[in-house]
């Protein structure tokens, strides 16, 4: 019973890691660059939602408020790529790393200035309520996190597999030069992907915020999500999600049954083990380009 309890909580937490990891992978696949501000985009999205929804602020109804936050954050992501990242085109990878780390600081600072540094709670219609199923008590927020992650994953899959734009995004990540010459506006597509990952980060942030208070530093969770993305192979969307869930499940189990301290280390230990044993990640595509 206890294990089951821990497992469900772990999966829910893991879904949040996985969604942030998804953001890493989306941008990496499109641009071959890593956005180290992904965790901070999650944080900022959560605060935007809080600003739209909480009674002390704008007080919009929950769902429209969250959707509005996702749309605004999508615009912010699009704008960051359009205005800042695109200027780095042709520069060494390292400049993007520095840029996105700096971007994380900026987002933290802006959030702290607007909403303050003391932890605040997002008002949701479901937090704190729970369901008892044969002795296992599951919080509504965990159920909703898992459901929303499932639906979002399906939507993303449908976008990439079924839409014209999604197919173009796949094509551009597989062969950028060929994408250019068949007429894909690759740069605009990259901006759209940045926007998409901003919107996904916002949903992750709202799910995170429904489990507890938030402050401008929760973006540090991005480091664990980064580990999740590496575990998943850093090029695979399902891999990122599963990597996140793996970390989410191991953490509470390690905290309960193993000596203290191991739990905090576990994401990185798993990442190292995966890197050593399966350097391409657990779920990587096989590289098979013919020359």
């Amino acid at each position: 019973m206890e294990v089951l309890q821990l497992l469900i909580g772990g999966i829910a937490t893991g879904c949040i890691y996985g969604l942030v990891a998804l953001g890493f992978v989306l941008i990496y696949k499109a641009t071959e660059g890593v956005n180290f501000a992904q965790g901070d985009m999650m944080m900022f999205g959560a605060f935007l939602a809080l600003g739209f929804v909480n009674s002390g602020h704008m007080g919009l109804p929950f769902l429209p408020g969250v959707l509005l936050a996702a749309i605004v954050m999508g615009g912010v992501g699009y704008g960051i790529d359009r205005v800042v990242v695109r200027q780095l085109f042709g520069q060494p990878q390292f400049s993007l790393v520095i840029l996105t780390i700096a971007l994380g600081f900026v987002l933290r600072f802006v959030a702290g200035t607007i909403w303050g540094y003391t932890p605040v709670v997002l008002e949701t219609p479901y937090s704190g309520r729970s369901l008892s199923l044969g002795g296992v008590i599951i919080g509504y927020e965990d159920i909703i996190t898992i459901l929303v992650t499932g639906v979002l994953t399906l939507l993303l899959w449908a976008f990439f597999a079924k839409t014209r734009l999604g197919l173009a995004a796949q094509a551009a990540s597989q062969n950028q030069m060929a994408a250019y010459i068949v007429g894909v506006p690759v740069q605009r597509l990259n901006s759209i992907i940045w926007g998409l990952s901003g919107a996904v980060a916002t949903i992750a942030g709202v799910l995170y915020a429904s489990k507890g208070a938030i402050d401008p530093n929760i973006g540090l969770l991005g480091i664990k999500a980064f580990a999740a993305a590496v575990i998943g192979g850093f090029g695979s969307l399902p891999g990122a999600l599963l990597g996140g869930i793996l970390i989410g499940v191991v953490e509470p189990l390690a905290a309960r049954y193993l000596p203290s301290g191991i739990s905090q280390m576990s994401p990185y230990v798993i990442m190292l083990v995966v890197l050593v044993t399966r350097p391409n990640g657990l779920f990587s595509q096989i590289q098979a380009k013919k020359v």
Binding site: R164, A168, Q170, A178, V182, G183, Q285
Partner: peptide, 18 residues
């Protein structure tokens, strides 16, 4: 320069993207 993970038909479809 093909799109290696897309199928033959998807590659052709991409040719008409413009």
């Amino acid at each position: 320069e093909v799109f290696p993970y897309l199928t033959v038909e998807e590659n052709l479809r991409m040719g008409a993207y413009a």
